[in-house]
């Protein structure tokens, strides 16, 4: 069979037949996706753009109700001016917080993931496979479950975090349990005076760190195992310290694998709906709201469909800028490494 194969390689058949056969296949296979996406993806998105220039509200929802007024860029201007007449909406703060939220999370996830992957990659470590199996657990639990469970863990009166703190720190330092009624998610005063972030940010950072580092450790482990052992041996012979080996071999080899993943994690964390919505509910005073949760509230709670559509269009452009910047970063680094 394999010996006869070269002899069977015929020149292309009549090109018109071939081309039209391909054409038929392309149309046939693409048609279902094009039809479905045209109706339920493209049309709503185009409709969304039109919607964003109107004052569409509850009054326009009923069948036969008058068409909404076209208001031009009014919705956009009101969003940029934070002038929506709803409480706790500050557009600039929202964007800055959202960026900082994603960035701080990803940095911690990547560092912790790499460190723990290196730890678990130690030769001769006992129970290595057991640890690797258990440490994946946060990844496999649906985010909505993680968010609701952590919300209850942060409960000021009965939550596990406060009970744990009063059981350990409280017992050791003889602080009465009543001192541990920390309102993790809604405390108004900032815990660190000179950093304008509420306690809920730190609480969710901890919860999302629990959720986020294991997948980074999985990616890092894969990259670590591809580093040839000879490199470490050679460096050792040359008298490199363990820090130098980590800095000059491990980090250099990990970066090309981790960077695309870090970018992916940044976008995922930037749009992480469940934690902000279920844990803090955006509180206190909307200061831990993300763009996604704000977009949901505009439609679900405020029923400002026109404003919500304009907000979604703005979100699209923010994410477009982020995508372009991160792609440039990924490419620049790839070239540097090559």
């Amino acid at each position: 069979m394999s010996a006869a194969a070269p002899a069977l390689r015929l020149p292309p058949r009549q090109s018109w037949w071939r081309r039209s056969a391909n054409g038929r296949l392309i149309v046939l296979y693409l048609l279902p996706a094009i039809l479905v996406m045209g109706i339920i993806t493209a049309y709503p998105l185009i409709f969304q753009v039109w919607l964003s220039f109107t004052d569409y509200g509850v009054k326009n929802l009923r069948v036969g109700s008058p068409a909404p007024n076209v208001v031009g860029f009014d919705n956009y201007i009101r969003i940029f001016q934070s002038n929506l007449g709803i409480p706790n909406f500050e557009f600039l703060r929202l964007i800055l917080y959202n960026l900082f939220w994603a960035l701080s999370n990803v940095i911690i996830h990547v560092i912790l993931g790499v460190l723990i992957a290196v730890l678990l990659n130690t030769k001769g470590l006992w129970f290595k496979r057991f640890y690797r199996a258990i440490f994946i657990i946060p990844v496999v639990i649906p985010p909505i479950i993680v968010a609701t469970v952590w919300r209850n863990m942060y409960d000021p009166d009965y939550g596990a975090i406060n009970l744990l703190l009063s059981g350990t720190v409280g017992t050791l330092l003889r602080i009465p349990p009543d001192a541990f009624r920390i309102d993790w998610m809604q405390q108004v005063a900032d815990p660190i005076g000179f950093i304008p972030l509420p306690l809920a940010f730190y609480g969710m950072l901890i919860a999302n760190t629990w959720l986020g580092w294991p997948l980074n450790a999985v990616v890092a482990t894969g990259a670590l195992q591809s580093i040839p052992n000879e490199l470490y041996e050679a460096a050792e012979i040359d008298g490199a310290s363990s820090w130098q080996r980590f800095r000059n071999i491990t980090i250099v080899y990990l970066r090309p694998a981790m960077l695309p993943y870090a970018i992916y994690g940044f976008v995922i964390t930037f749009n992480l709906f469940y934690l902000a919505y279920f844990m803090s509910g955006g509180g206190p005073f909307g200061r831990t709201e993300l763009l996604v949760t704000q977009a949901y509230r505009l439609v679900n709670e405020q029923r400002l469909y026109g404003v919500g559509a304009a907000f979604a269009v703005i979100m699209f452009f923010i994410l477009l800028v982020i995508t372009i910047i991160t792609n440039r970063m990924a490419k620049a680094t790839a070239r540097y490494d090559a």
Binding site: P44, F47, L51, Y56, L61, F273, V292, A295, A312, M315
Partner: peptide, 16 residues
């Protein structure tokens, strides 16, 4: 479309 989170299409899908 992939770039845009699903929440951002809530209003047009709801109305349509």
């Amino acid at each position: 479309v992939l770039m845009l989170p699903a929440v951002a299409t809530l209003a047009p899908l709801f109305i349509t």
